[in-house]
Amino acid sequence: MLNFCTLFDSVYLSRGLAMYNSLSQHCQRFHLYIFAFNEKCYSVLQALQLENVTVISLSEFEDEELLRVKPARTRAEYCWTCSSSTILYVLNHYSVDHCTYLDSDLYFFSSPQVLLDEMGDNSVLITPHRYTRQYDQSKKTGIYCVQFVTFKNNQQGRTVLEWWRNACLEWCYARFEDGRFGDQKYLDDWPERFEGVYVSQNLGGGVAPWNMQQYEFERLESNVIGTELKTNKKFPVIFFHFHSFVFVTPDYFSPRPYYKRNETSIVLLFKPYVEEIKRIRSNYPAIQTSELYLHGWKYYKYLLELFVRRGLKEKKYIKLLHEN
């Protein structure tokens, strides 16, 4: 049994449900603990009665320490503050031997079981950003990405997890300061600071906009296979991290044009995600009213970047993304 937790509010409902559906497709036995970060999100999830899911409200989850720091943090900063606490909550309240935190904008293309197998007897699993050189922000945002982080329910795992929670309670902001950034830079020295921390070597665990330029992708039967250009090493894509995915209008979605991509990545990675988001939103129209779209100057800035700076190639990608 694989145990996961995630957190999101109503703005991320369709993305969170897309992640859950992809897990359901590729995992035979799993349980997902969803921390609903506002009342609308909680009520929608409760009504859906999703299989293999436990929905936890903010009133159940928040403790005195979290409530103490909450007023001084933005919405995003508070979510980052809480990531470690959601894992600890699951370990403390449910009889599980491990828990993996998932960002709600992940989408699985194959089972993550191989990542849990890879960590072996270690107690903590972390995944690198693997930045492409031109996008490398590791000095500011961290070597490792808080996207897929596993903790076993043992002394080693709890030692790291409780240290991380306490650090995030003390400081967790969306700025680089004194070697810290959000909840993420804290992970940089874990392999040296703690025993039992394993860094995943599987390239398929953490394909993302900031590293996909290093790979070519192809479909092999039901799998999406990546090939690392530098080594010619092949690997199944386990999950893609849809960071910077833009909801432009209720019917129009786009990857941010900041990161370079090609036609194959659009068709094999982005298009299935868009189709799943559209299917979810069609089945549950109420979700659309809770999600945020570009408006005002943000909308015109996006169009300028998209069509003026990127030109015809970007128009081609957008057409591929949305055509039936």
Score class of each variant (00 low, 15 high):
137 Q>L: 12
137 Q>T: 03
137 Q>F: 03
137 Q>P: 08
138 S>F: 07
138 S>C: 01
138 S>Y: 04
138 S>M: 00
139 K>T: 03
139 K>E: 15
139 K>H: 03
139 K>V: 07
139 K>L: 04
140 K>C: 10
140 K>Y: 08
140 K>N: 05
141 T>A: 03
142 G>C: 03
142 G>E: 00
142 G>K: 05
143 I>S: 09
144 Y>E: 11
144 Y>H: 06
144 Y>R: 07
145 C>A: 13
146 V>T: 12
146 V>A: 12
147 Q>W: 09
147 Q>Y: 06
147 Q>D: 10
148 F>G: 07
149 V>C: 12
149 V>I: 12
149 V>D: 09
149 V>G: 11
149 V>S: 13
150 T>G: 12
150 T>C: 15
150 T>H: 13
151 F>S: 12
151 F>Y: 14
151 F>R: 14
152 K>R: 15
152 K>W: 10
152 K>I: 13
152 K>L: 12
153 N>T: 11
153 N>G: 13
153 N>H: 15
153 N>Y: 07
154 N>C: 15
154 N>D: 15
155 Q>D: 15
155 Q>N: 14
157 G>F: 13
157 G>S: 13
157 G>Y: 05
158 R>E: 14
158 R>H: 08
158 R>Q: 12
159 T>V: 10
161 L>D: 03
161 L>E: 06
161 L>Q: 08
162 E>Q: 12
163 W>H: 12
163 W>C: 09
164 W>M: 09
164 W>Q: 08
165 R>V: 09
165 R>W: 05
165 R>H: 11
166 N>I: 06
166 N>C: 06
168 C>L: 02
169 L>A: 04
169 L>R: 08
169 L>W: 02
169 L>Y: 10
170 E>N: 10
170 E>R: 11
171 W>A: 07
173 Y>D: 12
173 Y>F: 10
173 Y>T: 11
173 Y>C: 07
174 A>F: 12
174 A>W: 09
175 R>H: 04
176 F>N: 14
176 F>K: 14
176 F>H: 15
177 E>G: 01
177 E>L: 04
177 E>K: 02
177 E>F: 10
177 E>N: 05
178 D>M: 00
179 G>I: 02
179 G>C: 08
179 G>M: 11
179 G>A: 01
180 R>G: 00
180 R>E: 01
181 F>H: 08
181 F>E: 04
181 F>C: 00
182 G>P: 00
182 G>L: 04
183 D>C: 09
183 D>P: 02
183 D>T: 01
186 Y>P: 01
186 Y>S: 09
187 L>P: 02
187 L>K: 03
188 D>M: 00
188 D>A: 00
188 D>K: 04
188 D>Y: 02
188 D>V: 07
189 D>A: 06
189 D>I: 03
189 D>P: 00
190 W>I: 02
192 E>Q: 09
194 F>G: 04
194 F>M: 05
194 F>K: 03
195 E>R: 13
195 E>F: 07
195 E>P: 02
196 G>D: 03
